[in-house]
Design a protein around this nucleic acid. Structure first.
Lengths: 193, 193
DNA sequence: GTCTATAATATGATAGAC
DNA sequence: GTCTATCATATTATAGAC
């Protein structure tokens, strides 16, 4: 007979994700992770026998699922392309808390661990995001190659805006990205309606 | 009577910078820093009594000096705006090694250490870069506000391209940024001559 | 200025009680 | 499933010889 869970699976992973996205993999000590989740280190090891690495992997998997549900799926419709991008922008805004939170994909990327345990998941996430954005552009009549270039640009702007928002201590860059997103993908200034 | 230096000041800081830019502040252990510089830990403490924090601070200061010499100065002339941007792009290419190296400003930014010892230097570097790029746009006839927006976008693209290059294991995004830089700032496609 | 040796602490991880 | 207690190791940092 086991004790009742002190924290739900979702909440646990969300809190771990927050720590990893704030301080990166190396910076996320077990004491920090324990404090953030309210669990003791041994309890975390019971749930994640693989330790920190497994925690980061599951957090990345969760992030991949979030990406699928809140970004990729909305991008595929229904609604007009502009409407879908508005949903995506709104979801990104909530996810990154207006630019105050860093991106896990950035914080878990390390040139040292190029072939490490996270590289594959990160590559997959970026590729899926770029493809989905490019597909939307194609849908509005843009040719495949420029569509892909626009999508890559948009992802660069997303990541760069988060870096710049963090580095300058202002959420301005991220908000600028959000409002520029539709034009970046569709190539037109969205209507004021 | 002291022993002769085994490593020049410049080389020392460059090697430290490399480690910090690769693994971030938390990931840069003294053993890693010692191995990268060829010095023992005690020797590093002799040179940097403030430990890792001082190392990172001096590395950031060095980066600031590099920015001044290789980016800000070229941006102020001489030469046509397009020529100056070509120099800047070339220097960025060399500095980031074609997109293979991460940016220190990104790797030393931490939401946890928002008012930490590095935040001020990072803010200053970003602000100076944006201002210099905006000034160049203004020089070509762009109004101040859109000029600043262009400059911010360019810096976002720089940072985002580095994140994406690292995350995807391809230098493509960074190269795309380099070739897009002139148009981002000047608003015109550069001549093919 | 650099080194070896060492101290104090923090870290990732495990054992075993409840 | 969670905890306290503990281990082995790595970490930041210092002392003192050369």
């Amino acid at each position: 007979m086991s004790r009742p869970r002190l924290i739900t699976e979702d909440d646990l992973l969300a809190r771990l994700a927050r720590v990893f996205s704030e301080v990166g993999f190396e910076g996320a000590s077990l004491s920090l992770l324990a404090k953030a989740t309210g669990l003791q280190k041994a309890s975390l090891y019971h749930r994640f026998p693989g330790g920190k690495t497994q925690m980061a992997e599951e957090v990345l998997a969760t992030t991949g699922a979030w990406l699928e549900a809140h970004i990729l799926n909305p991008l595929r419709g229904p609604g007009t392309p502009a409407e879908r991008l508005a949903i995506v922008a709104s979801n990104l805004d909530a996810f990154y808390q207006g630019g105050a939170r860093a991106c896990l994909l950035n914080m878990l990327s390390s040139p040292r661990i190029e072939d490490g345990p996270f590289a594959s998941a990160i590559r997959t996430a970026f590729a899926a995001l770029i493809t989905a954005l490019a597909d939307l552009a194609v849908e509005t009549g843009v040719s495949p190659e420029p569509a892909r270039a626009r999508a890559e640009r948009a992802v660069m702007l997303l990541q760069g805006s988060l870096v710049l928002s963090r580095g300058t201590g202002s959420t301005g860059p991220f908000r600028a990205f959000l409002s520029a997103l539709p034009e970046e993908i569709l190539g037109t200034t969205p209507s004021m309606a």
